[in-house]
Each structure stands twice: as structure tokens, then as C-alpha cells.
């Protein structure tokens, strides 16, 4: 997938979803570089176990929003389990960026109106 790109539905929907869930207030242009530790769920004063619970909650909710509110479906060969596990692995890696998250979402989800040929 291309890097952070306003013509890529996975990038734009990842961005609006994170804004919708109060995880960031960045505009699209600069959001791609934002790391996971700079999202609202990442509490650096908490233990890793507590933070992982928060990341798991968010990973399930991102999947809920993609499927239910944005009418995305899973790409051929992927499952809900794989998609959510990969989202979680990005979320708990403080150095990963929103662009990295969008890339994994692009891999697992066929977003509404997205070209099947991506």
C-alpha cells in the first residue's frame, strides 16, 4: 500500500475513526506520523497490563466501527481474529504510527466504496 495518502480509503477511515473515538485531534496531513503513545488510550503511567486492556478495547471498537458504521468487509483470506490481532499488535507498539495502523487496516479490510483492485 502507498504511505499516508488521502486517496486511500484505509488511511482516511483510520484517521476519522481515531478522531471519532477521541484518540487524536490531528488533521489528516500530519496524522500519519503520530505514534501510538500519542493516542489518547496510551497511558504511560499505567502498567503494561492495564495499557494492553485499553488497547484491546480500542482494537475491538475499531473493528466494530469499520464493519458496522463504515460497512467494511474483510478482505479475501482474512478473518476478524487476524484483523483485530494485527490492530492490537500495532496499538501496543508505542513506536508504530497511525500510517502503520492504516496499512494493516488496508491489508485486512475492504472499505465501503474501496476499489477491489488495491
Amino acid at each position: 500500500m502507498e504511505t499516508w495518502n488521502r486517496n486511500n480509503r484505509a488511511c482516511t477511515t483510520t484517521w476519522t475513526t481515531l478522531r471519532l473515538l477521541h484518540q487524536t485531534i490531528e488533521k489528516f496531513e500530519t496524522a500519519g506520523l503520530i505514534t501510538m503513545e500519542n493516542l489518547a488510550f496510551w497511558n504511560s503511567t499505567s502498567s503494561p497490563e492495564l495499557r494492553k486492556i485499553q488497547a484491546q478495547t480500542l482494537s475491538f471498537q475499531m473493528d466494530n466501527v469499520f464493519r458496522m458504521v463504515r460497512k467494511a468487509t474483510y478482505e479475501t483470506g482474512t478473518t476478524q481474529e487476524k484483523a483485530i490481532n494485527d490492530i492490537l499488535n500495532i496499538l501496543i507498539d508505542k513506536g508504530k504510527t497511525i500510517a502503520d495502523l492504516a496499512a494493516i487496516n488496508d491489508y485486512h479490510y475492504l472499505f465501503w466504496g474501496e476499489n477491489d483492485d488495491w
Binding site: R9, T16, Q56, T57, F60, Q61, N64, V65, R67, M68, V69, R70, K71, W112, G113
Partner: peptide
């Protein structure tokens, strides 16, 4: 995990896009 979102129709999904 349970709860979090409700399903939209195609028209709403298109509008959000």
C-alpha cells in the same frame, strides 16, 4: 468484548465516505 456500534445502511455509509 460486547457493544460499541450499530449497523448503518448503505446510504449512510456512502454519505460518511
Amino acid at each position: 468484548s460486547w457493544g460499541g456500534a450499530l449497523r448503518v445502511d448503505e446510504q449512510t455509509a456512502t454519505l460518511l465516505n
